[in-house]
Design a protein around this nucleic acid. Structure first.
Lengths: 205, 205
DNA sequence: CAAAAACTGAACTGATCGGTTTACACTTCC
DNA sequence: GGAAGTGTAAACCGATCAGTTCAGTTTTTG
């Protein structure tokens, strides 16, 4: 796929990352064995170790890439044009869709689990994920258009509220494997509730 | 301490549980070695295995006990008497104090991390922890006294909102080891914000 | 086509894992 | 004081772990 990585790092680099992601995200760091990763990647263990000095480096490489994915998956631009309520609804919906997806849940789970063991990891995840998402939301909430509809004094605090509203019981149940993937209806309903509460908090006096 | 467990299960039962809790909560299931647990507990490995058939049973025993602690740590009763705003503030503060404590963070971290590997665990934690807490809050929000101050149609949904408001950026940063334990001022300020937003959402029309 | 580079499979190392066994010591209680 | 019950330390087991080595095969490249 990636020409640069193929020429610089060998033909099977992407395979290794993909296999490692699958295993790490479902088994965690300690739970994932290098032999299993190599088998899943369709690659010999020697090849794997020609790319990465050790298991920990491979782990960090996988999660750094996942953080980038997360960052790139952020909001489309055209929603800015819409009516404020519609824009917020769209924002809440797409955020919930990501948070509730298999990938979103897995990344979060692993990062929380290993944050103590790998201090850089927790910080990197927080900054590329929740923190930049919050900044984007705060940026949108600072636009004049939003100012005409809502009375927001502290956009960062307001953005924090918006994110909080997205992380409700639905997500908690997902994280703890109490319920499986939510339906689109549930997500949509949750998004409605997010917007309703948010606008109630910041409506013009 | 516990006479029953001493007589039934041997003198060092509580030591084993305590040591195991320390190690499991900081290292996770896979990361914790039985030898280290035994050393931490000040007990021989043979003794440990005379109490528990295997590592997994010990793990579940520790976390079942922790779930009980969590349940018992729930709200005092006398706050019901107060002014609604004060009561909610007290509720938010004590909930935040627990969520942000070393113990609260550790339990949550481990349960999220191992929920996939131990399906019963995630459910048990959810039900003894967040779910019963939410029920208690919902119960309070259904009282006539609250009804005079707020216009709540769906107490469970309102309780979910209340919990959501408690799990904000502050807790996320704690979970991901971005920042260490919060000051009482930060917690107190966060509790104020919880109440303000909650009452704005459900104030009488 | 030939040399260089990438990859393979399998054997291997030394360490650690969960769990068992053994031979011995300390309490407790009749 | 002598069992019976409880705990200990350390050796031990087979399995698995992360990581290395190597002789040989495949792919790329010029």
């Amino acid at each position: 796929m990636n020409i640069q990585s193929q020429s610089r790092k060998g033909r099977k680099f992407d395979q290794v990352i993909d296999g490692a992601r699958n295993i790490f995200l479902s088994e965690g760091f300690e739970g994932a064995s290098v032999d299993v990763i190599a088998r899943q990647a369709g690659v010999s263990k020697a090849t794997l170790y020609s790319y990465f000095p050790d298991k920990q480096a491979l782990f960090m490489a996988v999660l750094n890439q996942e953080c980038d994915v997360q960052r790139r998956a952020q909001m489309d631009i055209e929603f800015l044009q819409r009516d404020v309520r519609d824009a917020l609804r769209h924002l809440a919906y797409s955020m919930l869709e990501f948070l509730m997806s298999d990938e979103g849940v897995s990344i979060f789970r692993v990062c929380v689990a290993e944050a103590q063991r790998f201090p850089e990891l927790g910080r990197a995840f927080y900054e590329t994920g929740p923190s930049t998402a919050m900044s984007h939301v705060a940026g949108y909430l600072s636009t004049p258009k939003v100012g005409t509809a809502l009375d927001i004094d502290d956009p960062r605090k307001a953005a924090d509220l918006f994110m909080k509203l997205c992380r409700g019981d639905l997500m908690l149940r997902r994280l703890l494997c109490v319920s499986s993937q939510a339906t689109h209806e549930e997500v949509s309903e949750a998004a409605d509730e997010v917007v309703e509460t948010f606008m109630a908090r910041y409506r013009k006096a």
